[in-house]
Simulated assay, not measured.
Amino acid sequence: MSSEVPNDPAILDHVEKFWLGRKPASPIYQFLLEDIKLTYASKGVVRARLPLTNNHVNAHGGIHGSVSATLIDWVGGLAIAAWDNRTKTGVSTDIHISYQSSAKDGDTIEIEGRAGKVGGSLAFTTATIWKVVDDKPGPIVATGSHTKFVRI
C-alpha cells in the first residue's frame, strides 16, 4: 500500500457524497454499515474501516459471511464510483468470496475495493478485508471479486 498514489481529496469527497446519497435508500446498509468510515480514495481505489459489533457476527462469534459479502458488494460499487466520479455503479452480475480467517465483535476491519477495469458494459472489481492490528491492516479475513453491469 505504501507505493500507491496519495489520497485524492476530490475523489474521496465524491465517494463520500455518493455513499451518503445511497445509504438512506438501503436498510441493510443502514443496519450493517452505520459506523463505516471512508479513509482513502484514488482513481478506482477506496478504503474504509468498520468497528465490528454483535450485529456483524455469527453464532460462533466470527464475522458473518453475509457481512463480508455485503462489504465486498458495497466497496466494489464505491471503487467504480471512484474510477471516474460516476454516480451510477451498475448492478451485480456475480460475486465471489474466499474466507481466510475471521474477526470478532470489538475488532476493527479495513476494507479495500479496487476497480481493475470499468468498461462500457461491465466493471470488474476486487476487494480485501483485513483485521486491523496496531492501526494497520493485519491478517486477511476475506478476499473477493465482483462484476457489475454498468450500462444502465
Results as ranks from 00 to 15, higher is better:
V141L: 08
T70A: 15
I111N: 06
V15T: 00
A115I: 04
S2I: 03
L52D: 06
K131P: 11
R47G: 00
A115W: 06
D35Q: 14
I111G: 05
R49H: 08
I11Y: 01
G44H: 01
H146W: 14
H146K: 15
T125Y: 03
D73W: 00
T125R: 04
N58E: 02
G44F: 03
P27I: 10
S66Q: 05
G77F: 02
R114V: 05
Y29A: 11
S26F: 09
S101K: 09
S42R: 03
A10L: 08
T89Y: 10
G116P: 02
D35L: 02
D94S: 13
H60F: 14
W130P: 07
G144Q: 04
H60Y: 15
S2A: 15
V75A: 02
T143D: 10
K131E: 12
I97K: 13
L52I: 02
P27Y: 11
N54P: 01
D107N: 05
G21R: 08
Q30P: 04
R22E: 00
A142L: 12
F18Y: 13
S3F: 09
T53R: 15
L50P: 09
I152K: 10
D134K: 07
E4G: 15
L52Q: 05
G44V: 11
V15G: 00
G90E: 03
L32P: 06
K37I: 04
D135Y: 13
S101P: 06
G120W: 11
T108A: 07
I140Y: 15
L78V: 01
A142E: 03
W74E: 01
V141H: 12
W83N: 07
W130C: 05
S121A: 10
D13H: 01
L20K: 14
E34V: 05
T70R: 03
G90K: 02
L50F: 07
W19S: 01
I36T: 13
F31D: 04
H64I: 02
T128Y: 09
A10G: 02
V46A: 06
G120D: 13
K43N: 13
I95W: 09
S121T: 15
Y40C: 04
K17G: 06
V132A: 10
D134N: 14
A41S: 10
E112Q: 15
I152T: 13
